Amino acid sequence: MNKEIKKRNIVFLGTSLPRECGLATFSQDMLDEIQKISDFNPPHIMAVNNDKTYEYGSQVMGQINQFERADYLKAANELNQSNTDVLVIQHEFGIYGGESGEYVVELAEHLTIPFIIIFHTVLSEPSDKQRQIMKKLADMSYKVVTMVQNKVQDLIEVYDIAADKIEMYHHGVPFVDTGSRTELKERYGYSDRQVLSTFGFLSPGKGIEYAIQAMSGVVKTHPEALYIIWGKTHPVVKQQVGEVYRQKLTDLVTELGLENNVAFVDRLLTQEEVVQSLVMSDIYLTPYLGKDQAVSGTLAYGIGYGRVIISTPYRYAIEMLADGRGMLAEFNDSASLETHMLNILDHPELKTEMENKTLALGQTMMWSEVVKSYAKLFREVMSSSYGLKGSAV
């Protein structure tokens, strides 16, 4: 008689939907894929809240008030006493309390169950406190994960993390069955347009103003070009300064007379809408201003769906758009963006070539593929001496 296989229990620590946060979306996408694997139970989340309350679903097993130090110890005890086999700590500066988010270290120190860390941000020049926090977390963890190869060296050299502790897995991209570019353009009323797009939360670091300025030159030879900016203002930015940045952008559109060539969709998109916005795009833009950005979920999505991408040369873009998968414009430079936009619009054969190259990488980045690496790591943790010593009873 076959012995029944004990299913594994995985819990994530971090933000959770419906909180509007890229990290929460990342976690949800991974959870959705893990529960499709036969030897795992549906995963859960220990959700970190800011100063708001959220109507969570059944996948949230507990909550931490970001600013309440006592909540972290309470959560550690709850995790230790649960049937959790492996904890996945999603690390991002700004979501945990204390100086540089140090409260999460106290939680980790009290864990008796094994855990891994996913570093969503790896700063090249961290403060002493930031470096200390990431080093401590790494030392206590079974493994740390980064989503870009060029950050592995930073983890080793800047943070003094042992090379054999580091894994690199791509940022996952969800699969959405959708229509073709032609079908979607027809559905949205853009059949006669060349569509350029950007999606995600709006904030000043996105550099959208330079793409809008570039459009003023593009439309002289391509009046059919339409730049669609999909997404609402980042909730933290909106809370702090309101819609100042969006108003700046809309004023710029009016000033340049681009009302027929730049459009804003001011709301949070569903996952299906995000993918549709990409699939119908002829060019996807990430003109971001921060050169050290280690990972961009929006760029990952663009690659996953094989779009031609024009970006500024931040760290993630340099790596992901190598080998002819995209074009890199200069930072803070609308003329540079314009040159690349026109190059693609003027040469459809170049667009096709670049889309094929990008899609080849993108197919390896779908969550259905990426989750296999995480599942293998979770099994490894549990079967190791680390996992056996740390497993909850």
Rank of each mutant, 00 (worst) to 15 (best):
M168T: 05
Q149H: 07
F115P: 08
L321R: 01
H110S: 14
Y305L: 07
T233D: 09
K238I: 01
S16L: 00
L328M: 07
Y103R: 15
M354R: 15
A70G: 12
M341E: 07
D323R: 11
R187Y: 02
V393T: 15
E92G: 00
S38M: 09
Y210A: 00
G242C: 14
D333V: 02
A294E: 09
S203L: 10
A214L: 04
N261I: 01
F175I: 04
R246L: 15
Y245N: 13
L196M: 08
I95Y: 01
Q153W: 04
R315W: 02
V88P: 12
E92F: 01
S180Q: 11
G22P: 09
G94L: 12
L256H: 06
N150T: 12
T352S: 13
K135E: 02
R315C: 11
I116C: 08
L258G: 06
K376A: 13
M147L: 14
E102Y: 04
E209P: 02
G302P: 04
T286W: 01
L79K: 10
R325D: 03
E183C: 03
K74E: 09
L289H: 14
Q28N: 05
H347M: 15
P126E: 10
I10C: 03
I133M: 05
M1N: 10
L359H: 13
E319H: 10
Q130I: 01
A211D: 11
D39E: 13
V105Y: 00
K376N: 06
I34Q: 02
T298M: 02
E369V: 14
S336V: 05
D333K: 12
Y210E: 14
F12R: 10
Y316F: 13
A76Y: 00
T233W: 01
I228N: 03
M327W: 05
H222M: 00
S334W: 00
E338A: 12
E273S: 03
K3V: 07
S16A: 15
S127I: 01
Q247W: 06
G231P: 01
E255N: 09
D85F: 03
L342N: 15
P204H: 13
G94P: 11
K74Y: 10
K135Q: 15
V393D: 14
L249N: 05
F199K: 06
R315I: 10
A317S: 10
E186Y: 04
D164R: 15
K376I: 06
T146H: 00
Y386Q: 05
K232F: 09
N261C: 07
L269W: 02
V244E: 09
L13D: 00
K135A: 05
H222L: 00
L184Y: 04
G217Y: 06
I34K: 04
L359K: 14
L269F: 03
S141K: 07
T352Y: 12
N261F: 03
F119Q: 13
